[in-house]
C-alpha cells in the first residue's frame, strides 16, 4: 500500500513539476530571446515579469473556446489532447534521479519512440480537422517531417542501446558511470539533437508552423486553451528532448557529488533547453524540401554508419 502511495505521489509530483517547468519556460524563452535581441521582454507582471505566465494562463483559460463551424468537431478537440498526452506519457520513462521515476520498464526507450510517433497524429489531425488550407499545408509538412525524422531519431540512439546493452533508461544511465555517452556516441548525439528539434518543430525546423508562410500552420484555427495545449505541448516537447539527451548522452543524474543527483539532472536539462532557445534566436528556416533531403541524404547514412561502427566495435571488444 505504501509503495503504491509513494509511486502515485511521485507521478503526481513529476506531472506538476513538468507543467510548471513548461509554463515557466514560456517566460524564460521570452526573456532570453529579448536579451539576445536587444529588448526587454515581459518585465511588468510580478518580479522580473515572471507572473506574466500566470496572466497569460488566466487569459487563455477564459478565452472563448471557439470551434470553427467548418471544422471536424471531434477530431478538432482530440488533436491538442494527443500532443499533451503523448509527451506527458513519454516522461514516464525518464529517471530524474535514483528512485524518482514513474515506471522503470525494460522497453523504456522504445516506449518513448512509440509515443513520439503517436505525437505526429496531433499535428496531422489538428491540421486536417481545421479544414483550413494553411492548416492543411502545415499538417502535411508536419507529418512528412516528423515521420522522416523519427527514423534517424530511432537509429541514432541505437548506438547508446548497444553500448548500454539495454533499453531500460536506468541501465543506460548506470552504464555511463565511467564515460558519458556523448563522447563515444558523439555522432549519435548530434543526430539525435537535430532530430529532436525537428520532432518538436522548433525553429529552425518550425516548418509546419512557419509563421511568415503559413501563419501558424496546423494550429491556425485554434484559440483559447486548445491553442494553449499546443503551446505548452511545444515546451513540454523541448523539456522532453532535453531530458532525453541528458539521460542518453550526458549521464543523467550522474554528477560530481556535491549536489544531489536530481539537481545535476536539472542543470544539464536546462542547459539544453537554453540551447534550444538560442537556436531559435539565431537561425533562419530552411525550405521543406531542403529539410527532407538533409534528413534522408545526410542524417540517415550517418546514423546507419554510426550504428554499424558502434556495433562492430562492441562486438570486437567483447
Amino acid at each position: 500500500m505504501n509503495e503504491t502511495l509513494k509511486l502515485t505521489l511521485i507521478a503526481i509530483g513529476i506531472l506538476l513539476a513538468l507543467l510548471t517547468i513548461a509554463a515557466g519556460l514560456i517566460w524564460v524563452e521570452r526573456r532570453m530571446l529579448a536579451a539576445w535581441q536587444d529588448r526587454y521582454g515581459p518585465n511588468r507582471v510580478g518580479p522580473f515579469g515572471i507572473l506574466q505566465v500566470v496572466a497569460d494562463m488566466i487569459k487563455m483559460f477564459f478565452k472563448e473556446d471557439w470551434i470553427p463551424p467548418f471544422a471536424d468537431k471531434s477530431v478538432f478537440i482530440l488533436a491538442p489532447a494527443i500532443v499533451m498526452v503523448t509527451i506527458l506519457l513519454s516522461f514516464v520513462i525518464i529517471p530524474f534521479a535514483p528512485g524518482i521515476l514513474v515506471a522503470d520498464i525494460n522497453i523504456g526507450l522504445l516506449f518513448f519512440l512509440a509515443m513520439s510517433s503517436l505525437g505526429a497524429y496531433s499535428v496531422v489531425l489538428g491540421g486536417w480537422a481545421s479544414n483550413n488550407k494553411y492548416s492543411l499545408l502545415g499538417a502535411v509538412r508536419g507529418a512528412a517531417q516528423m515521420i522522416s525524422y523519427e527514423v534517424f531519431m530511432g537509429l541514432s540512439v541505437m548506438g547508446v542501446v548497444i553500448m548500454a546493452g539495454s533499453f531500460n533508461m536506468t541501465d543506460i544511465v548506470l552504464a555511463q558511470k565511467n564515460v558519458w555517452f556523448f563522447i563515444p556516441q558523439f555522432l549519435g548525439f548530434v543526430i539525435f539533437f537535430i532530430a529532436g528539434i525537428a520532432e518538436t518543430h522548433r525553429l529552425p525546423f518550425d516548418i509546419p508552423e512557419a509563421e511568415s508562410e503559413l501563419i501558424a500552420g496546423y494550429h491556425s484555427e485554434y484559440s483559447g486553451m486548445k491553442f494553449g495545449m499546443f503551446f505548452v505541448g511545444e515546451y513540454l516537447g523541448i523539456t522532453l528532448i532535453s531530458a532525453l539527451i541528458t539521460t542518453l548522452f550526458f549521464g543523467g543524474w550522474l554528477g560530481f557529488g556535491f549536489l544531489p543527483p536530481v539537481v545535476w539532472f536539472l542543470i544539464k536539462m536546462f542547459a539544453f533547453i537554453l540551447f534550444f532557445i538560442l537556436l531559435r534566436a539565431s537561425l533562419p528556416r530552411p525550405r521543406y524540401d531542403q529539410l527532407m533531403s538533409f534528413g534522408w541524404k545526410i542524417l540517415l547514412p550517418l546514423s546507419l554508419l554510426n550504428l554499424l561502427v558502434t556495433g562492430a566495435l562492441v562486438l570486437y571488444f567483447t
Binding site: 535581441q37 529588448r39 509563421e211 534566436a281 539565431s282 537561425l283 533562419p284
Partner: peptide, 12 residues
C-alpha cells in the same frame, strides 16, 4: 530575414 524565418535581425 524574418520572412526566411530568422527572428532576431528584425529587432536589431
Amino acid at each position: 530575414a524574418q520572412d526566411l524565418g530568422m527572428m532576431t535581425p528584425v529587432f536589431l
